[in-house]
Design a binder for these strands. Structure first.
Lengths: 154, 154
DNA sequence: TATAATTCAGACTCTTTTATCTTTAATTTA
DNA sequence: TAAATTAAAGATAAAAGAGTCTGAATTATA
């Protein structure tokens, strides 16, 4: 698992909000929760963290919810991943060796650096604008089979 | 964290055993534990799993310990990783979507597949023979600064 | 045979992650 | 102003991962 659950939920929710059409300002968390089949309270916490990182804005009361804090092309997947998982995924040695580096590499250092750079690059270059376009066209999917059913809880 | 702690400890211990010189048959777990600064009991469990997966052989009593069950060139890092972390790391969608695949990809599907293939390839092509060679030559390091000190526990 | 060295096996604890539940605060609308 | 809707905040619980502890089984050696 490269990304935590928190992080994948956050990515999905943000993509969901970004690909909403209509003049509506804020999307209620409960609606996101139902559509993506994610626990409402858990999702609330995740979105709170995204608002403190200035990726989302939130608003309370009727017609409240969350919305993107910037234009979609200004938010990369990397921004969201770093806000929720930090950058401990991307820095440091695969084997967890403290002294691992270019001068004294661990056995996996070279191949891992190469893979990691590709991953980082794709996370940075993917932003909400180009992704939500693909989602709206139906070329990409945000939710799986699980939302044929509705959540029982919350 | 791509690999669990269990897995990185297992990799290090196996590399340590593979790069031992001398005519000695079995390497005591306690010695591995001390050299790599890994909790003895925890390491014991990990190595037990590697013996059940036929990567290590073990022997009890004085002069006992563990040794490789095959020749070093027959054991790849991938073997060890799969034995300890399974292949849940390598299969499935980064975002955890059940229906994600070539026909209905999630937003990260393409870039993740590419990165993942590189990682898998480097894990499969790296075996204990070529790595322990590098370790013995001093080009690669298996342990960090932490083993300048000895463990207090166990 | 007694003792020491070693892995094996299981229960147990601690920490982090994931998830749920309850209450409070803000906001709109009737 | 009262009621309904919504996010915020905090307490709690459940599950998994990481690590510890104790005792039993096996083996070599004195």
């Amino acid at each position: 698992m490269l990304l935590s659950k928190t992080c994948t939920y956050g990515l999905l929710a943000t993509l969901f909000v970004a690909s909403q059409k209509g003049e509506r300002d804020y999307v209620p968390i409960r609606e996101i929760s139902r559509q993506l089949n994610i626990s409402f309270h858990f999702l609330t916490k995740i979105l709170q963290r995204l608002t403190t990182h200035n990726i989302m804005n939130s608003y309370r009361g009727p017609n409240g919810g969350v919305r993107l804090a910037k234009t979609p092309d200004e938010i990369s997947l990397m921004d969201i991943i770093q806000a929720l998982d930090g950058n401990k995924i991307f820095e440091g040695c695969v084997l967890g060796l403290p002294g691992c580096g270019e001068s004294t590499p661990c056995p996996l250092h070279q191949s891992w650096s190469q893979s990691r750079d590709i991953i980082i690059h794709s996370f940075m270059s993917a932003n909400l604008a180009n992704m939500s376009q693909e989602i709206q066209k139906g070329n990409l999917r945000i939710s799986g089979m699980e939302n044929w059913f509705t959540r029982k809880d919350d």
